[in-house]
Design a binder for these strands. Structure first.
Lengths: 150, 150
DNA sequence: GAAAATGATTTGTATTACAAACCATCTTCA
DNA sequence: TGAAGATGGTTTGTAATACAAATCATTTTC
């Protein structure tokens, strides 16, 4: 059985490919891959430093610096937690949200040639398969209709 | 149509997940994600500095340093090109090949829980879909037999 | 209320990355 | 042929990323 090996190859290849696109698009907005992720996470919620660090698998000191620079650029803000004086909550500024939206659009545009090679059924299948791989199954989709057999 | 958006989400999520695994496994062997890629590329062929840089989307000066450190660790070697005195060819040492193999095994092991959630047919489908996304279609597989409909 | 734990920042060091300047080796072509 | 330009790498300088250890401030625990 070579499929198990093949899928690792394919996953790794796709990973580097997508990561390359993300790095390029991020770079066009002066954002590193990590900063891109931070913006992505903070798009719809605030989070504390340690929480972000744990989620991204980074040291809290690394996170501190990352937040510093993004804050200096006016993309996000540090706030206090009224319940616990030690905690720092991070959330996006309007400018940050604006940038995040632009970047997201660019990413969709940049990946369109790749995803565009798939027909709707294949798209659906790929989403489902990736969700399984990411241990996110099953996806709560907009259309709860008859999704391909699973 | 939300599939086109969903697939970007799924791809990005899977990318960060796989990249996280690669970063972790690499780290266990004191290898950055980039160094991991370099080893992966040089596993079965030699390459010149500029070639590697172009392939990885890095500056040649970055590549130079990367090679420096890997060479200092005894993982790879710089050689001359007899046809063109300017060119530096890079290739793995036995120790580098050894390490690359160990890392690859570890990566397969680390991804096994994720890929293991797929049955053989799903594995096959995922490989094919990812290959299409990576503009690599169709894959020349070990088993040229009746692959699932495409 | 002192000691321990927690959340974040600071400091120091290595790596990654880019750009510009530089050196050596081809290539071109006058 | 021999100077000018192009090409392939390295060096140097700077910034960002990342970790670890030390530090500071604020809870929590006993």
């Amino acid at each position: 059985m070579s499929s198990a090996d093949d899928v690792v190859d394919a996953l790794v290849r796709a990973t580097f490919e997508v990561a390359g696109v993300l790095t390029r698009i991020g770079g066009e907005h002066d954002l590193s891959l990590t900063q891109l992720r931070v913006l992505g996470i903070l798009r719809d919620r605030r989070a504390r430093i340690t929480e972000l660090a744990a989620y991204l698998g980074l040291d809290k000191s690394t996170m501190s610096g990352l937040i510093d620079r993004a804050q200096r650029r006016g993309l996000l803000t540090r706030g206090k937690n009224p319940e616990d004086g030690r905690v720092v909550e991070v959330y996006m500024t309007p400018a940050g949200l604006e940038l995040a939206k632009r970047v997201e659009d660019d990413i969709r545009r940049a990946l369109a040639p790749a995803t565009g090679r798939l027909d709707p059924e294949q798209l659906d299948r790929l989403v489902n398969l990736l969700d399984i791989v990411s241990a996110r199954s099953p996806r709560t989709r907009a259309a709860p209709g008859p999704t391909a057999a699973r």
